[in-house]
Amino acid sequence: MKVVVLIKRVPDTASELQVAADGKSVVTGGLKFVMSPYDEHAVELAIQLKESHGAEVVVLSAGPPETKEIIRSALAMGADSGILVDTAQLGALTCRGTARLLAAALADLGADLVVAGKQAVDDDAAQVPERVAELLGIPHASVITRFELSGTTASVDREIEGGQYTLELPLPALFTTQKGINTPRYPTLPNIMKAKKKEIREVPAAQLGLAADSLSAQATTEAMTLPRQQRLCRVIEGDNAQRVKELVRVLHMEEKVL
């Protein structure tokens, strides 16, 4: 069985972000980059399948050359090999283009299972894996919190507001992972050493033979701003009874949020 994990390089969630001088992008210089946290759950799921079913685990990412660092992290968790679709020579990619690149790279891999995080925590786009499934013509389920395999059928729990669906899908299929499905492991030192020798194949995006208009953006950023953050920061003083009374009064009478 072959499992392909789609991962993305994103700024660390602890990052303080600034809008660049062009007013349309975020300053990335000086930021620390990591694997998107939901993708770690997908990598963990794949490695567990390696342990339980002897699956081969391939990590696939589209991004700039630096993306190799997070592919290496996935290899250190236990994945077998990596593929980087190098997008350095491409212009701005939207989800439509990214999904086409990933689907093209997946085309001849013969994956039985494709897994990815439920969304990347930079653009929060929540659609690239679903698009990939559509392009590959395989069924999928998003935001899963349980995965079980019996034969070539996957049984999953898919989160919805206040509840869940339990679904069965035949492989090959694609799933996106949500927190709760597992606890991603930390790489051990021996595994970090081993990862250094594992192969990361680099595929220039141009080699995938996609027509320019299938990668072109149909969404353009006109402006980026930081949300207005004017909070009152009023600390209410007095004894407990007085403070609670005053809090309820302002919320009720002044802010009218009760």
């Binding site: 989800c95 929540a126 679903e130 998003s142 919805i160 507001e161 953006a217």
Partner: peptide, 24 residues
């Protein structure tokens, strides 16, 4: 709607129609 199920539906439809989609 960018609900749990709405996001999945929109993503798949956008892929079928081959258009970009802005979620949420």
């Amino acid at each position: 709607s960018a609900s749990a199920l709405g996001k999945e539906l929109c993503a798949s439809v956008a892929a079928r129609l081959d258009v970009d989609l802005i979620q949420d």
